[in-house]
Amino acid sequence: MIEVAKLSKRYGDLSAIRDVSFTAQPGQILGFLGPNGAGKTTTMRIITGFMPATSGTVRVDGFDVFEQSAEVRRRIGYLPENPPLYNDMAAVPYLRFAAKLKGMGRSAIEDALERVVQTCGLGGVQSRLLGHLSKGFRQRVGLAQALIHDPPVLILDEPTIGLDPRQIIEIRSLIRTLGTQRTVVLSTHILPEVSQVCDKVVIINEGRVVLEDQLTNLTRTRSLEEVFIEAISRDTVDGARAATAAEEEA
Protein backbone atom coordinates (compact mmCIF):
# COMPACT_ATOMS: atom_id res chain seq x y z
CA MET A 1 0.00 0.00 0.00
CA ILE A 2 1.25 3.46 -0.92
CA GLU A 3 -0.12 6.65 0.62
CA VAL A 4 1.16 9.87 -0.90
CA ALA A 5 0.04 13.01 0.92
CA LYS A 6 0.58 16.62 -0.09
CA LEU A 7 3.90 15.91 -1.71
CA SER A 8 5.82 18.90 -3.09
CA LYS A 9 9.27 19.20 -4.60
CA ARG A 10 10.92 22.48 -5.45
CA TYR A 11 14.22 23.10 -7.18
CA GLY A 12 14.91 26.69 -6.19
CA ASP A 13 12.03 28.67 -7.69
CA LEU A 14 10.95 25.86 -9.96
CA SER A 15 8.20 23.67 -8.60
CA ALA A 16 8.42 20.12 -9.96
CA ILE A 17 5.36 18.83 -8.13
CA ARG A 18 2.81 20.53 -5.88
CA ASP A 19 0.56 18.93 -3.27
CA VAL A 20 0.46 15.56 -4.95
CA SER A 21 -1.76 13.10 -3.07
CA PHE A 22 -3.06 9.67 -4.00
CA THR A 23 -3.23 6.17 -2.62
CA ALA A 24 -2.59 2.79 -4.19
CA GLN A 25 -4.02 -0.36 -2.62
CA PRO A 26 -2.59 -3.87 -2.71
CA GLY A 27 -4.03 -5.91 -5.53
CA GLN A 28 -4.42 -2.74 -7.50
CA ILE A 29 -2.46 -1.47 -10.47
CA LEU A 30 -2.31 2.28 -10.48
CA GLY A 31 -1.71 3.96 -13.84
CA PHE A 32 0.22 7.16 -13.35
CA LEU A 33 -0.33 9.36 -16.38
CA GLY A 34 0.69 12.78 -17.50
CA PRO A 35 2.41 14.70 -20.28
CA ASN A 36 6.19 14.81 -20.41
CA GLY A 37 7.65 16.90 -17.63
CA ALA A 38 4.48 16.66 -15.53
CA GLY A 39 6.40 15.28 -12.54
CA LYS A 40 5.83 11.53 -12.86
CA THR A 41 9.49 10.56 -12.52
CA THR A 42 10.03 13.04 -9.68
CA THR A 43 7.09 11.57 -7.75
CA MET A 44 8.33 8.03 -8.29
CA ARG A 45 11.85 8.93 -7.22
CA ILE A 46 10.47 10.38 -4.01
CA ILE A 47 8.36 7.29 -3.31
CA THR A 48 11.40 5.05 -3.72
CA GLY A 49 13.52 7.22 -1.43
CA PHE A 50 15.97 8.19 -4.16
CA MET A 51 15.36 11.86 -3.51
CA PRO A 52 13.58 13.74 -0.73
CA ALA A 53 10.45 15.83 -1.06
CA THR A 54 10.45 19.48 -0.07
CA SER A 55 7.26 18.82 1.91
CA GLY A 56 4.60 16.16 2.29
CA THR A 57 4.75 12.50 3.24
CA VAL A 58 4.86 9.11 1.60
CA ARG A 59 3.99 5.94 3.47
CA VAL A 60 4.69 2.52 2.00
CA ASP A 61 3.02 -0.35 3.85
CA GLY A 62 2.74 2.03 6.78
CA PHE A 63 6.43 2.99 6.82
CA ASP A 64 7.43 6.58 6.24
CA VAL A 65 9.85 7.04 3.34
CA PHE A 66 11.81 9.67 5.24
CA GLU A 67 11.79 8.27 8.74
CA GLN A 68 12.00 4.54 7.98
CA SER A 69 13.73 4.68 4.65
CA ALA A 70 15.45 1.29 4.93
CA GLU A 71 12.16 -0.50 5.66
CA VAL A 72 10.56 1.15 2.65
CA ARG A 73 13.44 0.36 0.34
CA ARG A 74 13.32 -3.28 1.39
CA ARG A 75 9.69 -3.46 0.25
CA ILE A 76 9.99 -1.68 -3.06
CA GLY A 77 11.00 -2.97 -6.46
CA TYR A 78 11.86 -0.03 -8.68
CA LEU A 79 12.39 0.13 -12.41
CA PRO A 80 13.67 3.65 -13.16
CA GLU A 81 13.14 5.40 -16.48
CA ASN A 82 16.54 4.20 -17.66
CA PRO A 83 17.15 0.64 -16.53
CA PRO A 84 19.98 0.82 -13.95
CA LEU A 85 22.39 -1.59 -15.64
CA TYR A 86 26.15 -1.99 -15.40
CA ASN A 87 27.21 -2.39 -19.02
CA ASP A 88 30.33 -4.36 -18.14
CA MET A 89 28.35 -7.09 -16.36
CA ALA A 90 26.48 -10.08 -17.73
CA ALA A 91 22.79 -10.45 -16.95
CA VAL A 92 23.00 -13.18 -14.31
CA PRO A 93 25.91 -11.75 -12.29
CA TYR A 94 24.13 -8.41 -12.42
CA LEU A 95 20.90 -9.85 -11.08
CA ARG A 96 22.84 -11.72 -8.41
CA PHE A 97 24.45 -8.42 -7.42
CA ALA A 98 21.07 -6.68 -7.26
CA ALA A 99 19.66 -9.53 -5.16
CA LYS A 100 22.53 -9.29 -2.68
CA LEU A 101 22.04 -5.53 -2.41
CA LYS A 102 18.42 -6.21 -1.56
CA GLY A 103 19.56 -8.40 1.30
CA MET A 104 18.65 -11.82 -0.08
CA GLY A 105 20.33 -14.98 1.18
CA ARG A 106 22.49 -17.18 -1.00
CA SER A 107 20.02 -20.02 -1.56
CA ALA A 108 17.06 -17.68 -2.06
CA ILE A 109 19.04 -15.87 -4.75
CA GLU A 110 19.45 -18.93 -6.96
CA ASP A 111 15.72 -19.70 -6.82
CA ALA A 112 14.82 -16.08 -7.49
CA LEU A 113 17.22 -15.96 -10.44
CA GLU A 114 15.54 -18.92 -12.03
CA ARG A 115 12.14 -17.33 -11.44
CA VAL A 116 12.93 -13.89 -12.94
CA VAL A 117 14.87 -15.32 -15.88
CA GLN A 118 11.72 -17.28 -16.64
CA THR A 119 9.13 -14.56 -16.01
CA CYS A 120 11.05 -11.80 -17.78
CA GLY A 121 12.03 -14.01 -20.69
CA LEU A 122 15.78 -13.73 -20.22
CA GLY A 123 16.61 -17.28 -21.29
CA GLY A 124 19.40 -17.13 -23.85
CA VAL A 125 20.87 -13.80 -22.75
CA GLN A 126 21.91 -14.83 -19.23
CA SER A 127 25.62 -14.62 -19.97
CA ARG A 128 25.56 -11.76 -22.47
CA LEU A 129 27.08 -8.44 -21.41
CA LEU A 130 24.36 -5.94 -20.57
CA GLY A 131 26.07 -3.31 -22.71
CA HIS A 132 25.55 -5.51 -25.76
CA LEU A 133 21.83 -6.13 -25.21
CA SER A 134 19.05 -4.53 -27.24
CA LYS A 135 16.80 -1.92 -25.68
CA GLY A 136 14.04 -4.47 -25.14
CA PHE A 137 16.28 -6.90 -23.31
CA ARG A 138 17.80 -4.10 -21.24
CA GLN A 139 14.30 -3.11 -20.18
CA ARG A 140 13.51 -6.69 -19.24
CA VAL A 141 16.72 -7.10 -17.22
CA GLY A 142 15.77 -3.87 -15.46
CA LEU A 143 12.36 -5.32 -14.68
CA ALA A 144 13.95 -8.57 -13.48
CA GLN A 145 16.08 -6.50 -11.11
CA ALA A 146 12.94 -4.87 -9.69
CA LEU A 147 11.25 -8.26 -9.20
CA ILE A 148 14.14 -10.31 -7.90
CA HIS A 149 13.38 -9.92 -4.19
CA ASP A 150 9.64 -10.42 -4.76
CA PRO A 151 8.69 -7.03 -3.32
CA PRO A 152 5.12 -6.25 -2.21
CA VAL A 153 5.31 -2.83 -3.88
CA LEU A 154 6.41 -2.19 -7.46
CA ILE A 155 7.22 1.18 -8.96
CA LEU A 156 7.61 0.95 -12.71
CA ASP A 157 8.61 4.02 -14.70
CA GLU A 158 7.53 3.40 -18.31
CA PRO A 159 8.19 -0.34 -18.24
CA THR A 160 7.16 -1.09 -21.83
CA ILE A 161 9.20 1.61 -23.52
CA GLY A 162 11.45 0.25 -26.24
CA LEU A 163 9.82 -3.16 -26.37
CA ASP A 164 8.45 -4.72 -29.53
CA PRO A 165 4.69 -5.46 -29.72
CA ARG A 166 5.05 -9.09 -28.71
CA GLN A 167 7.24 -8.18 -25.72
CA ILE A 168 4.79 -5.44 -24.75
CA ILE A 169 1.98 -7.99 -24.60
CA GLU A 170 4.12 -10.34 -22.51
CA ILE A 171 5.21 -7.65 -20.07
CA ARG A 172 1.69 -6.31 -19.71
CA SER A 173 0.34 -9.69 -18.85
CA LEU A 174 3.23 -10.17 -16.44
CA ILE A 175 2.37 -6.89 -14.73
CA ARG A 176 -1.28 -7.90 -14.53
CA THR A 177 -0.31 -11.14 -12.82
CA LEU A 178 2.02 -9.32 -10.43
CA GLY A 179 -0.69 -6.80 -9.64
CA THR A 180 -3.12 -9.36 -8.29
CA GLN A 181 -1.28 -9.49 -4.96
CA ARG A 182 0.99 -6.47 -5.01
CA THR A 183 0.71 -2.72 -5.07
CA VAL A 184 1.85 -1.55 -8.48
CA VAL A 185 2.39 2.01 -9.68
CA LEU A 186 2.99 2.17 -13.38
CA SER A 187 3.79 5.33 -15.25
CA THR A 188 3.21 5.46 -18.96
CA HIS A 189 2.31 7.58 -21.95
CA ILE A 190 0.46 4.83 -23.65
CA LEU A 191 -3.23 5.18 -22.87
CA PRO A 192 -4.37 1.82 -24.29
CA GLU A 193 -1.86 0.23 -21.93
CA VAL A 194 -3.68 1.83 -19.02
CA SER A 195 -7.04 0.61 -20.27
CA GLN A 196 -5.69 -2.92 -20.54
CA VAL A 197 -3.62 -3.15 -17.40
CA CYS A 198 -4.66 -0.68 -14.74
CA ASP A 199 -7.45 -0.64 -12.18
CA LYS A 200 -7.02 2.94 -11.10
CA VAL A 201 -5.84 6.09 -12.86
CA VAL A 202 -4.03 9.13 -11.50
CA ILE A 203 -3.41 11.94 -13.98
CA ILE A 204 -0.80 14.54 -13.15
CA ASN A 205 -0.26 17.77 -15.05
CA GLU A 206 2.27 20.52 -14.40
CA GLY A 207 3.10 18.98 -11.05
CA ARG A 208 -0.48 18.63 -9.77
CA VAL A 209 -2.90 15.75 -9.60
CA VAL A 210 -5.82 16.65 -11.84
CA LEU A 211 -7.70 13.37 -11.66
CA GLU A 212 -7.80 10.28 -9.46
CA ASP A 213 -10.43 7.62 -10.06
CA GLN A 214 -11.16 4.00 -10.85
CA LEU A 215 -10.71 3.15 -14.50
CA THR A 216 -14.22 1.72 -14.76
CA ASN A 217 -15.77 4.98 -13.52
CA LEU A 218 -13.79 7.02 -16.00
CA THR A 219 -14.46 5.00 -19.10
CA ARG A 220 -18.16 4.35 -18.54
CA THR A 221 -19.29 6.92 -21.08
CA ARG A 222 -16.10 8.17 -22.73
CA SER A 223 -12.76 6.85 -23.93
CA LEU A 224 -9.68 7.25 -21.76
CA GLU A 225 -8.16 9.55 -24.42
CA GLU A 226 -11.02 12.00 -24.02
CA VAL A 227 -10.78 11.86 -20.25
CA PHE A 228 -7.04 12.44 -20.35
CA ILE A 229 -7.16 15.39 -22.73
CA GLU A 230 -10.00 17.01 -20.86
CA ALA A 231 -8.19 16.58 -17.55
CA ILE A 232 -4.98 18.17 -18.70
CA SER A 233 -6.62 20.91 -20.83
CA ARG A 234 -8.88 22.13 -18.06
CA ASP A 235 -5.81 22.63 -16.00
CA THR A 236 -3.48 24.28 -18.49
CA VAL A 237 -3.36 27.94 -19.35
CA ASP A 238 -2.91 27.11 -22.98
CA GLY A 239 -5.33 24.21 -23.02
CA ALA A 240 -5.53 23.79 -26.75
CA ARG A 241 -1.80 23.40 -27.15
CA ALA A 242 -1.57 20.77 -24.44
CA ALA A 243 -4.48 18.91 -25.95
CA THR A 244 -2.76 18.70 -29.31
CA ALA A 245 0.47 17.62 -27.69
CA ALA A 246 -1.35 14.90 -25.80
CA GLU A 247 -3.15 13.78 -28.91
CA GLU A 248 0.12 13.40 -30.74
CA GLU A 249 1.44 11.44 -27.83
CA ALA A 250 -1.52 9.14 -27.66
Partner: peptide, 9 residues
Protein backbone atom coordinates in the same frame (compact mmCIF):
# COMPACT_ATOMS: atom_id res chain seq x y z
CA UNK B 1 24.36 5.12 -16.23
CA UNK B 2 21.49 5.37 -13.76
CA UNK B 3 22.82 2.60 -11.54
CA UNK B 4 23.05 5.21 -8.82
CA UNK B 5 19.28 4.82 -8.53
CA UNK B 6 19.67 1.10 -7.95
CA UNK B 7 22.28 1.66 -5.23
CA UNK B 8 20.40 4.42 -3.44
CA UNK B 9 16.99 2.72 -3.56
Amino acid sequence: SGTYELLLT
